[in-house]
Structures are given as structure tokens and as C-alpha cells.
Design a protein around this nucleic acid. Structure first.
Lengths: 151, 151
DNA sequence: CCAGGATGGTTCAAATCTGAACAACAAGTA
DNA sequence: TACTTGTTGTTCAGATTTGAACCATCCTGG
């Protein structure tokens, strides 16, 4: 650890751009979702994941891994979404410890109502500004580091 | 707004990969900084920005813009860093409303001590896993959306 | 010179996130 | 069966973030 490998200009530029952009975009998305539906970004992501899942339900731990939040944060948000009537909790039939988060009809309708506005933001600031090649490069690059980060 | 432009497979893959990876990386960085120096990532970024600035000082608002946090979050963190002796507050000579955050000697030393470990993480999960071309594509792509997000 | 509107920072309340501690259950082993 | 170890989800305390409200200061047009 005695000699540090600093980042050269190319590397630093990439890292800084990535960092700033991800934070800026996150803020923008958060703002849009809050204004349009009173949802936070994690909450929206939970709805999306559940909608994509078989039977629109998922185990808590798996869901937390997918959305990339801590278990306790997920517990908090599911409770919140449950009170809003968008999600329900069911005990898992095959594992008495387990809890299944299930998307309700209201939750699905909410998602369908909110998705267009959300996607418009994702498009306006990111997707529509990247070429096809850039999108593909980003996907492979991001997936490579994602896999490393998930060990 | 009647017809929604959904994301096709390529677009969705890129967006999902970007989203997950940025969150995972953020968590990893946070974990490393906390363990190594008891710093949060925003705190670390503040030190970096100040170290790079002329006279190692910056106006609060400008700093908040750079680090991408709200003004109140910056106030909070600067107060925190001030108590830790890493940063000082000075009233701006040219504007009595203004406040200059100044990096102290201790702050600079702290940064120099912490940077290697932090950069090692950035390298291990992101920079070293991307080719030169990928780094450059990412930089131009990210900068394009960053510019849009900053209006 | 002054009113009126921007700008800079701080304070505040409310919401959220995290890790640690915990309790209940699962699953393999002797 | 009884033990041991690992997993699951919740609870809890503490830290942090955000936007709104606020005051002080700047600045421009009349």
C-alpha cells in the first residue's frame, strides 16, 4: 500500500463524470416522482420489481438485493407502501420466517400511471442523449462492475 | 402525453445497469470510507473539492453545486467537518453574506491519508474494469447528460 | 438614494437510510 | 432427538438528507 496508483486524466474524468451525473440524475428523478405521485425513487423501484416478478410478489431479501437498499430500509418502505395500499405482506408458504411482498391492483395501477412521466425523465436526461453504441458500451461496462460488486 | 415511449431492451438494459451499479458502488465506497476514516462519501468529496480549489477554499453554494447536495446538507456537513478540525469557516471578504469553507492543514493531511484506500476501491470496482475506450465513451456520455441536468 | 427582487446561508421539522441487536425459524450433523 | 450454525425479517438508535421558512445582504432600476 506504499505506492498509490492515482487516477490519470482519462480515468479521473470518467469517474468524476459518472459520480456527478448519477447524483444529479438521482435528484431529478426523486423530484419528478415526488411531484407526480408522492413517491420516492426506492418506492418506485419496488413497485417496478414487483410488477415484473412472477405473481407480482417477491421475498423481502431478494427485493432488497434488487433495489439495492438495506433490509431495514426495505422493511420501512414496504410498511409505507402497505399503508398506501400499493403493496401487501403475505407470509411465505414454504418458509415461515419469510415474508412475501405482493403488489396490489392499486399498486399496479399506480405504477402504470406514474411510469410514463418517470420514463420521460430517464429519456430526457440519459437514454435519449446517448447513441446506440454508447448505450451498449455502458451496459457491458456497468454490468461488469455490478457483477464484481455483488461478489 | 397520451402515447408513452417505453424503453426497448437495449435502453432498459443500459438504464438498469447504470442504476444498480451506481447504487452498489455508492454503498461500497461509503462502507470503505467509514471503516478507514469515519468519513461519509459527501464529506470526502468536500475535502477533495476544497483541496483542488485555489487557496483550498470555496463558497458554500459553489461547493454544494459541485458535490451535488442541498445547501442545508452542506451546512450540516461543514459544521461536522469543522468540529473535526478538517475545515474552517471564514466570512467572504467581498460579500458579507458569503461564507468560505477552508480546508485546514489537518484536513489536507486527512485527505492524503484516506485517498489511497478510496481510490483503490474506485479502481477495483470501476476504473480498472473498464477499457480505455469504455472510459472515454462513458466520460462523453456522462458529461452530455450532466450538462443537461445542470440546465 | 431607495424600493423590490434576487442571492447566500442557516435553521427547522419531517422523512429516510444504515448497521447492530434481536427473535423466530431452517437445515444439517452427530 | 438435540445442537449448532445460518437465514429472515423487524426493531431500534443515530446520522444524514431535503425543502421550506427565514433573515441578512446584495444589486438594479427608477
Amino acid at each position: 500500500m506504499t505506492d498509490t496508483r492515482w487516477l490519470d486524466d482519462t480515468e479521473m474524468a470518467a469517474w468524476r463524470a459518472f459520480l456527478s451525473t448519477s447524483h444529479l440524475l438521482e435528484r431529478r428523478i426523486e423530484e419528478q416522482l415526488k411531484a407526480a405521485a408522492g413517491l420516492t425513487h426506492p418506492q418506485y423501484e419496488i413497485l417496478v420489481r414487483l410488477a415484473d416478478a412472477p405473481d407480482r410478489q417477491m421475498r423481502m431479501t431478494e427485493l432488497a438485493r434488487g433495489v439495492v437498499v438495506s433490509k431495514s430500509a426495505l422493511t420501512y418502505q414496504i410498511t409505507r407502501l402497505e399503508k398506501a395500499g400499493l403493496v401487501e405482506r403475505t407470509t411465505c408458504p414454504s418458509d415461515d420466517r419469510g415474508v412475501l411482498a405482493v403488489l396490489t391492483e392499486a399498486g399496479l395501477r399506480c405504477l402504470e400511471r406514474v411510469a410514463p412521466g418517470h420514463l420521460a425523465v430517464v429519456r430526457a436526461y440519459l437514454v435519449d442523449r446517448l447513441t446506440r453504441d454508447e448505450l451498449e458500451v455502458m451496459t457491458t461496462a456497468m454490468r461488469r462492475t455490478e457483477r464484481a460488486l455483488r461478489e
